[in-house]
Design a protein around this nucleic acid. Sequence first.
RNA 1: GGAGAGAUGGCCGAGUAGGUCGAAGGCGCUCGCCUGCUAAGCGAGUAUACUGGGAAACCGGUAUCGAGGGUUCGAAUCCCUCUCUCUCCGCCA
Length: 423
Amino acid sequence: MLDPKHLRENLESVEQRLATRGGAVTLGRFRELDSRRRELLREAESLKALRNAVSEEISRIKDKSQAQSRIAEMREVSARIKVLDEELRGVDDELQAVLLTIPNIPHESVPVGASEVDNREVRKWGEAPRFGFSPKPHWEVGEGLGILDFERGAKLTGARFTLYRGAGARLERALINFMLDLHTERHGYVETLPPFMVNRESMTGTGQLPKFEEDLFRLADTDYYLIPTAEVPVTNIHRGEILKGTELPLSYTAYTPCFRKEAGSYGKDVRGLIRQHQFNKVELVKFAHPSTSYDELERLLADAEEVLRQLGLHYRVVELCTGDMGFSAAKTYDIEVWLPAQDTYREISSCSNFEDFQARRASIRFREDDKAKPEFVHTLNGSGLAVGRTLVAILENYQQEDGTVVVPEVLRPYMGGCTVIGR
RNA sequence: GGAGAGAUGGCCGAGUAGGUCGAAGGCGCUCGCCUGCUAAGCGAGUAUACUGGGAAACCGGUAUCGAGGGUUCGAAUCCCUCUCUCUCCGCCA
């Protein structure tokens, strides 16, 4: 959510900057509601001030029969207040609804562009492996080794669900443990294991609701939703809290499964593990001081990149343009891993600074020192990494001509010493 | 799932025959005094949001005693609904 005061005072310039995201954003409705709200507020509050004063007067009168005329007067004032308060509530609700659907303002460093073709490549690391044969896509490698079973996944649940078996299941688990250990032991994150379902307030706090309900799985008999990313529960850990300035930045990591409807992606990535309704992810989340949040973004990005470096997987980092960024983000880097069978890079992590956009929605603040007024923190998060897609990258990049897959060295301790996955 | 108890400021904790309660008291914290140092002691201060005025310091108004609604001139106090916590029973990994 944007700061209503800032919005009020900079309506045109905000409108222009939001327009760079593509899609029309008109803030006229905001202006109407905002000024109506303040009108109503002024009138209702001055009547309440009157009522409070007179009520106090009445309380001092011993003989209540002497107060009858004042009481009658106040009865009418109260009735008027009730009408004003009702209208105010309606205006407030609509204003809130409008504010919740306005996306974040892109940071000034973000390249302006319409779609992913305008994203800017920041750097590349490593090299694409060379094969003396034609590399197979991961679904063929995985099925060939009997470690990925797409048909049974579909039987158990439906399309976009997969059954992992044997070394496949073990490899997924090894990746989760490897990532968590790296981030907690080397990068200083606190490990958390949050609920995989959250309530509406949490989804609103990070920006999934109210605008993106159709992307979420919702439980039929409660107001609980399956999390689409650990960002939601972990960022909401401090919802409604005032943190100490000295304890910032707070860095958390969490492994969770993620559940997404992937509505609107029909026909996209229908084969293999790339786009599933349920997938595993290790997430990195930071609560940062506003003055250093962009430094923290670079660090968080480096922490996510380190996973791929240790695994020896070639990747590149791109800076998303205004038109390709998510609703809540002020700036986003994507890490894209090389997939040889598709001859392309695929997103494996998305690292963003949300500035105070989520913090304002979720009311996450800090105090510079004991005397200072609370300010909103900046929240950041990034995948560190998407586990299923990392497994995809390993199967494709480490495959051998005989269909076996070499286990990257850093994972071997997590795989019981296994060096090659064979049949 | 059944029965009962509770939810007050950073924390603890008063306050229920409605009015002088944004709320006693204590702890903590901040500043000052005192003190050879520390402790103790003394004094003052110590919520948040919205809103009006002001360049600002700041001053005023309104709201907030789990959340929402109701009764009333007036509600932390009365009524209703919901949420959460705790205890006991049942069930269960």
